[in-house]
């Protein structure tokens, strides 16, 4: 459905939505961050948050189960699913929402991850499109995205000056609009036309570009043993920034956290993990098939631009630019990909 909401009515709508928990970008120590907010704290003017809302749907620590020995010595196991709680992520950017839809593919498919889906099904994603790019390293249009893409979104807001143009794409999205029907008007033909030109115009404003992205996946196939990885990873310090901040990186580890040895008590937890850490592929024999940072950079690039493409027919990069902005040594995924693409 398509509607117009005046900026004057915007707070009234938000107040209505606030019957459930709302996450939205707020400034925390000078950085934008998605936090639980009350209706008054919501704005549509913010730059890219340092972490995408991935941290809400796929938290860094997920409790799986609790275990203990009961009095007669037999083990007891209790499943710990995320709590029943509906929420809205307000102001998710189109690239980050696309990241969520990529995660859906990973945690859905043949095996449905009940922990992920419990959270995912309870959240409604309200996007705010990007009239101007929110980061100097945005390049969504180079990876099949756009500043107003609605992939993964339930609702998309476009700032039209005095109004928001509101589009809904799912039942969940319709519900949010229907909650306050009286606040919304039907768009006039002129407004529809304006929306289209605004969306087109936004695409021309992207600060960064990667040309011929299509050429990259086939090119990567022949580069497994290339010297390119050594050269490009020389300055990498093998931290977890590029992967932990990425809205599409989803690797995890599962471990048992023992809180008492006698009687035995503990929790099984899932925590984020990432391919840039040396112990990620360490075998218990002591052999590490990815022994150096060259092989780890190769993994990050190949996963995003070859393996994921082969499995899901999508790049596992949505062009948010976080890994570029935050890499401590300036490793720039666009530049690495250009070298891959142009490799002879």
């Amino acid at each position: 459905m398509e509607k117009i909401l005046t900026k004057k009515s915007f707070p009234n709508w938000i107040a209505k939505l606030a019957t459930v928990q709302i996450y939205a970008p707020v400034v925390k120590d000078d950085l934008w961050s998605y936090e639980v907010v009350d209706a008054a704290g919501i704005t549509t003017e913010y730059t890219n948050a340092i972490q995408s809302p991935k941290k809400i749907i796929f938290p860094q620590r997920e409790l799986f189960l609790e275990f203990s020995h009961n009095d007669n010595g037999s083990p007891e196991i209790r499943e710990l699913l995320p709590e029943d709680k509906e929420s809205i992520i307000f102001g998710i950017r189109p690239c980050d929402a696309k990241g969520v839809s990529h995660m859906d593919k990973v945690f859905g498919g043949d095996f449905e991850d009940s922990y992920y889906w419990k959270r995912r099904n309870q959240v409604t994603l309200v996007g705010v499109g990007c009239n101007t790019p929110p980061s100097p390293n945005c390049f969504c249009t180079s990876v099949d995205g756009s500043p107003f893409s609605h992939e993964g979104l339930d609702v998309l807001l476009t700032d039209m000056g005095d109004n928001y143009y509101v589009q809904t794409f799912t039942k969940k999205g319709d519900k949010l609009v229907n909650m306050s029907k009286g606040l919304f008007a039907a768009p006039k033909p002129k407004e529809k036309a304006d929306l289209e030109s605004l969306h087109k115009d936004a695409e021309t404003k992207l600060p960064r570009h990667l040309k011929d992205t299509k050429k990259i996946p086939p090119k990567l196939k022949g580069l497994f043993d290339s010297e390119i990885w050594d050269d490009e990873s020389m300055s990498c310090i093998r931290c977890g920034i590029c992967t932990y901040l990425c809205p599409t990186c989803h690797c995890f580890d599962i471990s048992d956290e023992i809180t008492s040895h006698s009687p035995l008590e503990g929790k099984r937890v899932r925590t984020w993990d990432n391919c840039q850490f040396p112990d990620f592929t360490m075998h218990s024999s002591g052999h590490n098939p990815r022994p150096d940072k060259a092989s780890r950079l190769r993994q990050r690039i190949m996963h995003k631009f070859q393996y994921f493409v082969e499995i899901y027919n999508n790049y596992q990069c949505v062009g948010c630019g976080r890994c570029i902005s935050k890499c401590p040594v300036g490793i720039d995924i666009i530049q690495v990909l250009e070298k891959v693409r142009d490799h002879v």
Binding site: K28, I237, R238, C239, G240, Y244, W272
Partner: peptide, 12 residues
């Protein structure tokens, strides 16, 4: 509370 344990502080 903000720390995501990326260990960049250690790695650098």
């Amino acid at each position: 509370d903000k720390c995501i344990r990326c260990y960049a502080c250690r790695s650098v």
